[in-house]
Write a protein that binds this DNA or RNA. Structure first.
Length: 570
RNA sequence: GGGCCUGUAGCUCAAUGGUUAGAGCAGGGCGCUCAUAACGCCUUGGUUGGGGGUUCGAGUCCCUCCAGGCCUACCA
């Protein structure tokens, strides 16, 4: 038994996430966590809401609520949806927690003591009407390059030229529309990442088994242009971890907070403290402090590609720079994007399917299966309703669901709702057990390697073996001349359901639980010995015929959804 | 502009430089009747984006061009 720390990139508090966000981090992380728990390992699976930053403030203002209240409400909403998708976090924390505040300030102080913080005075755009500094992208104006009138202060969406807000003609605040903007001097703390370039690079170079996506993005940041740049870790905002605090090794940072990307990854650690505070655990240090038991922990992070720089550069720089024995990540599993029907999912335009809507129209298992079996691992992937309908109907309803249905109903009609007695395995059954054992090994291998799509394909192939067996054994024929043999075949068929339930649990936990309940096999463990697992349900054991596991999606239904989700979210 | 990724069957994807490039779905044929009009077997289908090169041998390595995507440090 090994110990596995697993974190999913923490979703931003600003609204409900879409399916692309889900498949990029939380869902595969959950798959892995469930698999490892199923194998009997000790797992701590953490996630949280990322609550600081300008967008949260603006969203709260738009909702007419204090930002703390807005975040508290949205956290509950996200937590409930996460439950709906059966995301099995050991704790779902908040980056605005007292724990994170204390730890963020502690680490910043440590970095300063190690000489890795420097103060920089710079000029930033200030909006008088909004009474706040504005990030570049919150300034809009006419592009000096192409004349586009809604160019953002960081880049023009029309001609893609990178801009400085001072380049814009007729600049205005996107918050209020005010043109009363001025450049003001402001002081910020910078993390001297450049000092740690060699150390970070050596660390990244040692990670030869990571997805190319993870390492190539990291190397790009390390070596682009003049190499790794220092990074500002404070912002002129009120909502966040205060940058000025008792015992701070600097002055003059009043009214400023740490940059959200500085405190967000720290929440991974703080979340484990929240986990203890919530009474769910007793010792967080054995997961995070290599001097206090965490040196045998394997730490795996899951995230979308947009998050990779912060996890390969920023957070490791914080951890390593602190010179304290924190556990560093061992493996970064990164994902590309999921597109929606020929374009991108769009939160602002309400294009695509959002997590709450998905749960309204279908149970979570449908989404889990499709998303995971089509996870954007090697390149961006695309969601289409036709593909979704075809995959779900074929894989879940026909191959797995119908298998459960056919064997339980056959047994009920010939032997009753009890595992039938008599007969012994022949060559055919031995061959089946061997074939399944081989595929289970492959399945475990893919899961261990976090090869999500390949694992899904292997699992499906295991389901298919059951149908192949029933087809060739044909207990409905055998029953006529040799009822005892038919009983043995049926018994094996019923046992396959229990095996499938356990193997499938990481992907489709609800259906798995239904299958186990129907078979009266709730405590079934991982089939380390497939042959034994296929005899787990003894003769005379009672079962029930479950309801249809997966209903099919009809064409008319699909068309309705297609229309409903094409445009503006209602 | 720079960097990275992707391009393989109608669709979604596989293939440590090594037999005749494989699966699933869709299409075609046959079988089965336990089952959710389900299942099984067989089968059609590819100049691996174009061109050049290295090699005994290239989907794979190199060069170049084309197409799509992402990132480019003040959104997160």
């Amino acid at each position: 038994m090994a110990r596995h720390l697993i974190t999913s990139a923490i979703p931003y508090i600003n609204g409900i996430k879409h399916l692309g966000n889900l498949v990029g981090s939380q869902l595969p992380a959950d798959l892995y966590a469930r698999y490892l728990r199923g194998r009997g390992h000790e797992v701590l699976f953490l996630c949280a809401t990322d609550e600081h930053g300008t967008p949260a403030e603006l969203a709260a203002a738009k909702a007419g609520k204090p930002v703390a209240e807005y975040c508290a409400e949205m956290h509950v909403v996200q937590a409930r949806i996460a439950e709906g998708f059966r995301l099995s976090f050991d704790h779902f924390g908040r980056s605005s927690s007292a724990e994170n505040k204390a730890l963020t300030q502690h680490l910043a102080k440590r970095l300063a003591e190690e000489g890795l913080i420097r103060e920089v005075t710079e000029k930033q755009m200030y909006s008088v009407a909004d009474a706040r500094f504005l990030p570049d992208r919150y300034i809009e104006g006419t592009c000096p390059n192409c004349g586009f009138e809604s160019a953002r202060g960081d880049q023009c969406d029309n001609c893609t030229k990178q801009l400085d807000p001072t380049d814009l003609i007729n600049p205005r605040s996107t918050v209020s529309g005010s043109t009363e903007l001025e450049l003001r001097e402001t002081k910020h703390l910078y993390l001297r990442q450049s000092e740690m370039k060699d150390k970070l690079e050596a660390w990244i170079d040692s990670k030869t088994d990571w997805p190319v996506l993870s390492t190539s993005i990291a190397k790009k940041w390390l070596n682009d242009g003049d190499g790794l740049q220092d990074r500002g870790i404070t912002r002129d905002l009120s909502w966040g971890v205060p940058a000025q605090f008792d015992g701070a090794p600097w002055e003059g940072m009043d009214g400023k907070v740490f940059y959200v990307w500085f405190d967000a990854p720290i929440e991974y650690i703080a979340c484990s403290q929240e986990w203890v505070a919530a009474g769910k655990g007793t010792d967080w240090e054995r997961w995070w402090r290599t001097d206090k038991g965490a040196d045998d922990v394997t730490y795996t992070q899951f995230m979308g590609k947009d998050n990779v720089p912060f996890h390969t550069i920023g957070f490791p720089a914080t951890i390593l720079g602190s010179a304290e024995p924190w556990k560093l990540v061992d493996y970064i599993k990164s994902f590309n994007y999921l597109n929606y029907d020929g374009g991108q999912f769009s939160t602002s335009r309400g294009r695509g399917v959002f997590m709450d809507q998905a749960l309204e129209i279908l149970p979570s298992d449908y989404w889990r299966w499709w998303l995971l079996s089509h996870a954007p691992e090697s390149s961006d992937a695309e969601f289409t309703w036709e593909n979704f309908q075809a995959s779900v109907n074929k894989d879940l309803a026909d191959v797995l669901g119908n298998f459960v249905s056919r064997i339980t109903k056959f047994c009920r009609s010939k032997f009753g709702e009890t595992v039938p007695e008599g007969g012994a395995w022949g060559a055919q059954e031995e061959a089946l057990a061997e074939a399944i054992a081989g595929r289970v090994k492959a399945y475990e291998g893919f899961m261990d390697e976090k090869e999500v799509r390949k694992a899904a394909a292997e699992l499906r192939a295991i389901w298919v073996l059951g149908n192949e067996y029933l087809q060739s054994a044909a207990p409905w024929s055998t029953f006529k001349e040799d009822p005892v043999k038919a009983a043995m075949q049926t018994r094996l068929g019923l046992n396959l359901i229990g095996l499938y339930a356990v193997l499938s649990a990481p992907f489709i936990p609800n259906a798995s639980a239904t299958m186990l309940a129907a078979m009266g096999a709730a405590g079934a463990g991982w089939p380390e010995d497939v042959k034994a697992a296929l005899s787990a349900l003894p003769a005379g054991h009672a079962f029930t015929v479950p309801e249809v596991l997966f209903a099919k999606i009809a064409d008319e239904q699909r068309e309705e959804w297609q229309t409903r989700f094409a445009g503006i979210r209602s």
